[in-house]
Simulated scan of single mutants.
Amino acid sequence: MPAYILIAQDPAPATDAPTKKQQAGPFGDPMFPMLLMGLAVVFLFILPMRKQKREQQQMLSSVKRGARVVTTSGIIGTVVTVKDNEDEMTIRSEDAKIKVLKSSIARVLGQEESEPAKA
């Protein structure tokens, strides 16, 4: 029986077939889904939070004496004093005066109507 031994083999013929990387395109890259998730996080969470924080800061900076406000704890009152350089204000609710932080103001209901003069 003859024994066949392969000593050398001819190289494969050169073809113009694209490689796997070229076939996959940009959507086959494993970084593409991670990039999409990063963009989704930015547009769904970070940008709306920045906008909300900016609106909250504008609202707090526009609070003036006489404005009706609601605190985060649910207290409704009228602003008595506001100091620009401090982070606290005094509000009046019925017969009580309460000193609260500006950051605890949840929303401004509007300006209080001036009380009619008693005759």
Rank of each mutant, 00 (worst) to 15 (best):
Q9T: 11
T15L: 03
A17R: 13
T19Y: 04
T19D: 09
K20F: 15
K21W: 15
K21L: 15
A24I: 01
G25F: 01
P26V: 03
D29P: 07
L35Y: 15
L35R: 12
L35Q: 12
M37H: 06
A40K: 02
V41F: 01
V42Q: 11
F43K: 06
F45G: 12
I46K: 03
L47H: 04
L47C: 04
P48H: 01
M49T: 11
K51G: 06
Q52E: 14
Q56V: 04
S61D: 15
K64G: 02
R65C: 07
A67R: 03
V69C: 02
G74S: 05
V79E: 02
V80H: 07
V82F: 12
K83H: 14
N85A: 08
E86P: 03
M89H: 06
S93C: 11
A96E: 09
K97R: 13
K97N: 13
L101H: 10
L101N: 13
L101T: 10
K102P: 01
K102W: 14
S104I: 14
S104Y: 09
I105M: 04
A106T: 04
A106Y: 12
R107P: 04
V108C: 05
E113T: 14
S114W: 04
E115T: 14
A117P: 12
A117H: 12
A119T: 11
